[in-house]
């Protein structure tokens, strides 16, 4: 993570930019508007998780934090704010929320964007030994995407959080009162949901049956696309859960790049992430 001096400088620079913008009476959206405050462990800004479900998750994550010191935040949002890639936005949100103890950097941010159908698990450096990219990938692919495809946002978050806890705090035992059997129904406190409990086992049977198909499709897709999965070094993992197979990149205003002839290059720079570069062809 950034050190605090750098962050301070960046803040100062940002605020001076804002001041200039205000003086010029330019209606620039405040950058902070893109980063909501974290109000609890679960921050459901898209309104996809019921209050009782949220309470279950919040209690679970509070318990975990008290007992193990590990802090897990969850963001459920409709869309990635425009101008950001998934990776960039979640990384910045992590920097804003700063899950985990500062010196230990033992926080995790699980962020999902329902309308973009994208999600990412961002892991603090202090936990990377326990929660590797490969593990994140498995959690997303096996535990979360199947639920998300069915629109079960709570089940997806619950399963994802469970697996993250198992990885980062293996000694932590979830109290029975907080155990939710995803096979039987929605959250335990929501027992009176008419009709739904009957549907859910069926749904799970369907999901279970479709697992081999799902992975077959992924492998086939990977072979067809000639891709080799996650390359080294990343701290998070994201997947389209739409299965559309199109680019995961949502586009940004960043830079510009070349055409096909050697004379039509142009450089980029100063885009969404503040980095810069140039591109070309040969």
């Amino acid at each position: 993570m950034l050190n605090s001096g750098y962050r301070m400088k960046r803040l100062l620079r940002l605020s001076s930019y804002l001041l200039v913008a205000l003086c010029a009476v330019v209606a620039l959206p405040s950058q902070d508007a893109d980063f909501p405050e974290a109000s609890a462990w679960i921050n459901d800004l898209a309104g996809l998780i019921s209050d009782s479900e949220e309470a279950t998750l919040n209690t679970m994550l509070q318990q975990l934090e008290i007992e193990s010191g590990t802090q897990i935040f969850v963001a459920v949002m409709a869309r990635i704010p425009s101008g950001y890639t998934l990776e960039h936005y979640v990384n910045e949100l992590f920097a804003h929320w700063q899950p985990g103890a500062q010196d230990a950097d033992n926080g995790v941010l699980l962020a999902l964007f329902s309308e973009d159908r994208k999600l990412r698990i961002e892991v603090g450096y202090g936990l990377e030994g326990r929660l590797s990219d490969a593990t994140c990938q498995l959690i997303i692919d096996n535990d979360m995407i199947p639920q998300l495809r069915e629109g079960n946002y709570f089940a997806a978050v619950y399963a994802g959080v469970q697996r993250v806890i198992a990885a980062v705090a293996p000694d932590y035992e979830l109290p029975d009162s907080l155990r939710v059997s995803l096979e039987n129904a929605a959250p335990l406190s929501d027992s009176g949901d008419e009709g739904l409990p009957l549907l859910i086992p069926l749904l799970f049977l369907l999901i279970a049956l479709s697992f081999p198909l799902f992975f077959g499709a992924i492998i086939l897709f990977a072979v067809l696309m000639g891709r080799k999965g996650l390359s080294a070094g990343g701290a998070g993992w994201q997947r389209n859960w739409s299965g559309s197979g199109s680019s995961r990149y949502s586009g940004s205003s960043f830079g510009s790049s070349s055409g096909f002839s050697s004379s039509s290059f142009s450089g980029g720079g100063g885009g969404s992430s503040g980095g810069g570069g140039a591109s070309g062809s040969w």
Partner: peptide, 30 residues
């Protein structure tokens, strides 16, 4: 980072995307 093909995006956009996927913004001085 080397791969065979772009998927319709510009190489610079792809490079920036890979940069963040590889968590390369994790340097203290960026």
């Amino acid at each position: 980072h080397v791969e065979s093909r772009l998927k319709g995006e510009s190489p610079l956009v792809r490079a920036e995307q890979r940069f963040f996927e590889l968590n390369m913004q994790a340097t203290q001085l960026r």
